[in-house]
Structures are given as structure tokens and as C-alpha cells.
Design a binder for these strands. Structure first.
Lengths: 234, 234
DNA sequence: TGTATACAAGTTGTATACAGTACCGGCGGC
DNA sequence: GCCGCCGGTACTGTATACAACTTGTATACA
């Protein structure tokens, strides 16, 4: 077999997606060596698509590629976490600003966010605390994607999208803080309210606050508990 | 020959760099089809490194890659220009802000920018207007790189760097406006002064103003003159 | 014992052969 | 005359063979 069928995904796409997911979930821990031959055995594809997948992951920053030496799952340092959140704090407030403006003139989009707002509220009220964090993160993901989707600027959209796997990985590598979920729901409600009210400044401020709180929580947890899979370099 | 010598660049790197430069300079016009075989003939490398170079260029947005169809030099629309400058207006003020803060505590860095400031001033005073625009753009490039280099945040640095080829290409595809150069020098002087004075807000404002003026000039020129190599879709 | 060197294993970088698809032309039917 | 079918061509996607480099280890030597 050599060519992929008509509209289907190429093997390079499949390998790329699989590895990306495994890195996100932490199944492939930071620092894990990724030999091309090993991935060939593992995925069933040949070296060419494996190579392409690795290069793509390297471009996204999920893999560190040393020229004549090989690839490893990229490591996570305190500095990299700071950098990530600083950068998100620059981009995502701008994105929610654009989304707010887009929603102002688009009833359909408003409905989407209104629905999400009620879902956030329900998450706090009705979902048992056991399953709450999972439900919340799923919902928060959808919220983020809705923001991204409502972002007009192509570059902004792409750049934020490429940051998401890093954020997700960070969440999966560290422990979930149940208390954090409660507060984070409130932050999302604030964002929804501002967005639905058409108040772009307030929405942006709410997003900035949300990111600052997320970062603070991560750092608190790291200082307290063990840093599973994290390198404490910075 | 198969492996690259010790510290040398791989063929994929070479092809990538060569194509990037040709696209930047406009020698490969937007929309030009880039068949792998054609590039093999043209560069002397085999398909594997050529493929890798194409994928990399696609990731940078310099090439449009249609799955079973091939690659073309990416097209430039009015919308893409707007998007590019809107995005730069988000990133680069933040970058010069960081650079300003970095320079405050780093005499060596201050010296670099001080030197550049005087070079900008000299460009206006002494360089004959014939060679002025070339000298100016070279200097402006160095200025931009200095800003990028002084940027602490890894993501910010990388993202701005990836935007630069697009900006450069735009400049090379459109006609240079000698009047614009005069004004742009003044804008750069303002940025230098603010940076050296340690006034991050003013530096950021100056950068925003500079970008807005650049965009306005481009649009004015496009409305007036012919749009060489540009698709007027947006 | 410490250092330098040669060897071996494993890895990536590259070239190339093969398989399957999309596009383009001409031809026949309606 | 127009539309749909069909083959040829050129291309991409994939697999694999080969060459060169890097690293680690064992050995010889000072």
C-alpha cells in the first residue's frame, strides 16, 4: 500500500495526530526518546511519514529535534510554563475581544455562548463533585474553541491553536485541584457575561484574570506537590 | 552522497533557505506552482529533502499545500495583509516593551540601540536619497532583529520571527515609496528614543503608530498603483 | 590510574523505486 | 452542440535501501 484513498487522511497525518494526543495526555512523558525506527514499529507506518510527523511536532514545540541525534518529547520547565502563560495573556484577551465583537452582530454566535454560560452554571450546581472537574474541563475546552473559532484574524487563530496542546499537556501532567475548578467556573461565567453584554474590555480583563489565576494555581501546586514529569530548571 | 558533513547544514535546510529567500524577494511569485520534481532538478537535492523544505515552508505560511495536488507559493490578499499587520500590532509593541525593560538593566544592549539611533539619524542627513531607501531598510531590519533578540519570551520571539518573511515579501512585491522612508525614519527615531529613555509605554505606542502608518502606506500604494503579484481578493 | 584511540552499534540524512490518485485530453452518446 | 466516460500523463504518498555521522565501550598505552 502506498497512496491514501481519496479524501482520507495521510499516514503522516495519522501518526502526527496519534503522537500529539499521546504527548498531550502525558502517556509519552517529557524527555522520552522518539527513535524513528521505534515509531515505525509502533505505528505501522514507514519512516517517511513518521519523519514528517516528527518534524511537524517539532515545529509545534512538542518535540525537541537534535539534528544528528534524534527526537525527544519536549521537556517542560518552569520558565517554559511562564513563557506559555505570558504569551497566552497577550493573545487570548485579544481573541476574546474579537469574539465579543463578532458575537455582537451574530445572534447565532450569541446563542452558542449563552448556552455555554448556562452549562457552566449547571456544572457548579448539579454535577456531582466527583465528575465535576472532568465535565468542567471538557466544557472549558469547548469554550476555548468557540473563542478561537470566532477569532477573525488568521494568524491569531493559528497561533492560539498551536498553543493549546501545550496547555492541555500541562494540565494532564499536573494534578487537578478541585478547589480551582470552582473558582475557574466563576471566571468563565464572568467571561461569558462580558462577552454576551458586548463589553470587550471587560471580557479581555476577565480572560487575563483567568489566565493569571490558572498560572498561579499551577505554580502553587508545583511548589507544594511533586512535579510529575516536569523538569524544575527555571 | 547521502549524509551531510559534520557541522554542516542538511540539504533540507539549504533548500528551505533558498526557497524562502526566493519567495521573500518575489523571485518566486505568489501562485507559482512548486512541483517536487521541478525543485529536484532546480536544487540538485533529492525528493526527500525537497519535501521536507516544502512542508516547513507550508508551516510558515509561505507555501500553500494541497494534499494530493501539490504546492504553490502562497498568495497575498488584501485580507492577508490586514491580518498580518493586525497581528504584528498585537505582538511587536509587546516585544519592544520587553526590549525596553531589558535594555534598562543592560548597558551593552543600550549601546547597541544608541548606535542604531545615530545610524537612523545619519541615514536622513547624509545618505544620498538614491541609496537611502536600501540603506534604511537594511538598518530597519537590524533594528527589528535587535528587538526580537532582546525579547525574553520564547513564543513571542519565534512567532515574530516567523512573520518577518511575510513582511519582507510584501515590501519586495510592492513599490518602495521614497516619501515613506523619511517618515519611517522619524518613527524609528521615536522608538529608539523611548526605548533608551526606558519608557516602555511610549515605545509600544511608537511601534503601534509605526505599524499603522506602514499599513496605511501599503494600502494607499495598492489603491493607486498596480498590484504586482498581489491578488485583490479581500 | 588516567588518557587516547579504535571499533561497533544505532541513529539520522538521503536517494530512489513503487503504488495509487488527480487532472487533462479526446471520444462517443445523447 | 453539450455532457459524461475513459485512458494517458504527471504528480504526490509511501516504502525501503544505502551512506555517513554520533555515541559509547573496550582496549592499548603512558
Amino acid at each position: 500500500m502506498t497512496g491514501p484513498a481519496s479524501g482520507e487522511a495521510s499516514k503522516a497525518d495519522l501518526v502526527h495526530r496519534q503522537l500529539k494526543e499521546e504527548i498531550e495526555l502525558g502517556e509519552l512523558a517529557p524527555g522520552t526518546p522518539l527513535s524513528e525506527l521505534w515509531l515505525v514499529e509502533r505505528t505501522g507506518a514507514s519512516r517517511t511519514p513518521v519523519r514528517e510527523a516528527l518534524r511537524r511536532l517539532a515545529a509545534e514545540g512538542l518535540v525537541d529535534l537534535v539534528p544528528r541525534q534524534g527526537a525527544r518529547v519536549s521537556r517542560v520547565s518552569l520558565q517554559s510554563v511562564r513563557d506559555l502563560f505570558d504569551f497566552r495573556s497577550l493573545l487570548e484577551p485579544a481573541a476574546i475581544r474579537q469574539a465579543t465583537e463578532a458575537a455582537t452582530g451574530d445572534p447565532e454566535l450569541r446563542r452558542v455562548f449563552a448556552t455555554m454560560r448556562s452549562e457552566f452554571a449547571r456544572t457548579v450546581r448539579r454535577v456531582p463533585s466527583q465528575a465535576r472537574s472532568r465535565a468542567f474541563y471538557e466544557l472549558a475546552d469547548r469554550f476555548d474553541w468557540a473563542i478561537i473559532g470566532a477569532t477573525r484574524n488568521e494568524h491569531l487563530r493559528r497561533t492560539i491553536s498551536e498553543l493549546r496542546p501545550h496547555t492541555a499537556r500541562l494540565r494532564n501532567l499536573s494534578h487537578v485541584d478541585p478547589q480551582r475548578v470552582e473558582v475557574s467556573v466563576a471566571e468563565h461565567l464572568r467571561m461569558c457575561d462580558a462577552l454576551l453584554a458586548g463589553d470587550a474590555d471587560e471580557a479581555a480583563a476577565a480572560m487575563a484574570e483567568h489566565l493569571a489565576q490558572s498560572l498561579a494555581t499551577i505554580f502553587r501546586n508545583l511548589a507544594r506537590g511533586p512535579a510529575e514529569g516536569l523538569d524544575l530548571l527555571g
